[in-house]
Design a protein around this nucleic acid. Structure first.
Length: 510
RNA sequence: GGCGGCGUAGCUCAGCGGUAGAGCAGGGGAAUCAUAAUCCCUUGGUCGGUGGUUCAAAUCCGCCCGCCGCUACCA
């Protein structure tokens, strides 16, 4: 059986989950569910990143000890995954013992390979912000003094730090990208990474002494591991590292890390270099998705327009939200979230195109076929044309979903849905009822079969709604994967009374 | 400053050498099984500008304009 290991980033727990987190997780979830539907052994990982100074600070502000604070926030992320229907197989926290063990093991391997050395970290530090800033981020005052972007004064500080010999990996990384042209996608992001690496790599500071909320460096507890080593390592922790006899280890290397564009560099440059330096295979692919704006504006706490996905679910339902997020925008692009656009998709595509197609088909069967699935009968060219188009969906979708082209995949399905609506109008089974009942039965069976394919392939996108549609089509739970589509369903089986799957959204009067 | 991306119908975008496409929105018609849903027809673009290559350019090349991303440097 083929294996597939995919991950979301681990989410940083200094704030509450929002639509951006939901987007990443939903996209990964669709892919995970698709692979399972196709018979793959899937390991789907998500989790939370819980160390670092910002978390320490956020906990203090919340008046909690750090561990209690992270416990609370990670529960919130877990609850969000649940609310979003995320089908992760594991949920990792960087504060877990298994993760500390993995980080220490990785560190020791890097030390053994002479890839880590003790040096000094230098930079502009703002005491008020407890953060380092790059030269380019600073604002120069006319009198020559420098200020952080936040307005805080900065000073040049020097603290001991362990370094990873990233500079030794420039050529090897370039060769790796060359040999694996699909390693970074979309292409625009790949170009940026290539350009960054070609520009030269400096050694990477991988420890800090300025805070303690982290994993202590082996044999030098004054240091804790800095974010790169700590956070990225989660992907091998969950696969059992360093225990290579762990059953999970067969999932490594990860087939795909889905990331936001702000962390591409860490995943596409630092991570493979660290792994190769430790003698571990790098992941197969990194895919970077875009950002959402809200009603045309950047999402930010200060604007107060940060969207809580759970509020959207309450109003529109989970599946319409999942559908919208993946349908509205090509996965690698930025997009805009607007209420109007969501309602347009929900009503036009889910309620009118698909929901109504299922409803009219099923109610015709209920009323005119004794509520039983009709026999296949003698098919006409129009019937076989529709069914052939439907039968091509799994292959077409697989190719598109593999490219993370979710919007294209959905468009492919909607082509068939539109064709089915045209078909039912042209065949007019409600007229055949009087003139040619046998033909009517064939038409309705054809539609039921087309709907079965449509509902089957849409399950990863809208699990709950499509389960209900398959229920109404009386497709047994054991016959809902892609392989089952090759087997015709028996005629004469009673169908449950139809009920709408996607009600139209009507704006509350006010 | 360097590298890269984008600019096509009112909107969102596809097309990337052979005389412009989709969805939505707009207009007209049909039907009435269905969630007043659907189907059919249709209006609409000098493909950012400008030079060039070619028998032929939205599609290739140069320059210009406008957005955006990554990255660098100077005072």
């Amino acid at each position: 059986m083929k294996k597939f290991y995919l991950t979301t980033p681990i989410y940083y727990v200094n704030g509450a989950p929002h639509i951006g987190h939901a987007y990443t997780s939903i996209a990964a979830d669709v892919l995970a569910r698709w692979r399972r539907l196709d018979g793959c052994a899937v390991f789907f990982l998500t989790g939370t990143d819980e160390h670092g100074q910002k978390v320490e600070k956020a906990a203090a502000e919340a008046g909690l000890d750090t561990q209690s604070f992270t416990d609370r926030v990670t529960d919130d992320f877990r609850a969000m995954a649940m609310a979003m229907g995320i089908s992760n197989d594991d949920f990792i926290r960087t504060t877990e013992a298994r993760h500390k063990r993995a980080c220490v093991a990785l560190w020791e391997r890097l030390v053994a390979n002479d890839m880590i050395y003790l040096g000094h970290y230098e930079g502009w530090y703002a005491v008020r912000d407890e953060a380092f800033y790059g030269e380019d981020e600073l604002v120069r005052k006319p009198d020559g003094t420098r200020l952080a972007p936040t307005g805080a004064p900065v000073e040049w500080v020097r603290e001991p730090s362990y370094f990873f010999r990233l500079s030794a990996w420039q050529e090897k990384l370039l060769a790796f990208y060359e040999q694996n042209p699909d390693f970074i996608a979309p292409v625009a992001r790949r170009n940026e990474v290539l350009s960054f690496v070609r520009g030269g790599l400096a050694d990477l500071s991988v420890s800090r002494t300025s805070f303690t909320w982290g994993i202590p460096v082996p044999n030098d507890p004054a240091h804790v591991m800095y974010v790169w080593l700590d956070a990225l390592t989660n992907y091998i922790t969950a696969a059992g590292f360093p225990d290579e006899s762990d059953p999970r280890w067969r999932f490594w290397p990860a087939d795909l890390h889905i990331v936001g564009k702000e962390i591409v560099r860490f995943h596409a440059v630092y991570w493979p270099a660290m792994l190769m330096a430790a003698g571990i295979a790098p992941p197969r692919r990194i895919y970077s998705h875009g950002w959402w704006t809200v009603e045309g504006e950047k999402m930010s706490k200060s604007l107060g327009n940060v969207i809580d996905p759970r509020a959207l679910i309450a109003e529109f339902g989970l599946d319409p939200l999942r559908y919208f997020l993946l349908r509205e925008v090509p996965f690698g692009n930025d997009g805009d979230f607007s209420r109007r656009a969501l309602i347009t998709r929900l009503n036009g595509e889910l309620a009118n195109d698909l929901g109504n197609l299922a409803q009219r088909t099923l109610s015709l069967i209920a009323r005119n076929c004794d509520g039983r699935r009709p026999a296949i009968g003698e098919r006409m060219p129009a019937d076989t044309a529709l069914l052939a188009a439907a039968a091509a969906l799994p292959g077409g979708l697989d190719e598109r979903i593999t490219r993370l082209a979710f919007h294209e995949a959905l468009e492919e399905v909607w082509k068939i849905i539109r064709a089915a609506n045209a078909y039912i109008d042209h065949q007019a089974p409600w007229a055949l009822r009087k003139t040619d009942p046998a033909r009517m039965a064939v038409v309705l069976r054809t539609l039921a079969d087309a709907l079965r394919v449509i509902a089957t392939v849409l399950q990863p996108f809208m699990p709950e709604s499509m389960a209900r549609m398959l229920d109404q089509l009386a497709v047994p739970a054991s016959a809902r994967d892609l392989a089952a589509l090759a087997v015709e369903l028996p005629a004469g089986v009673a169908l449950p009374a139809p009920s709408g799957v996607f009600p139209r959204f009507v704006e509350p009067a006010g």
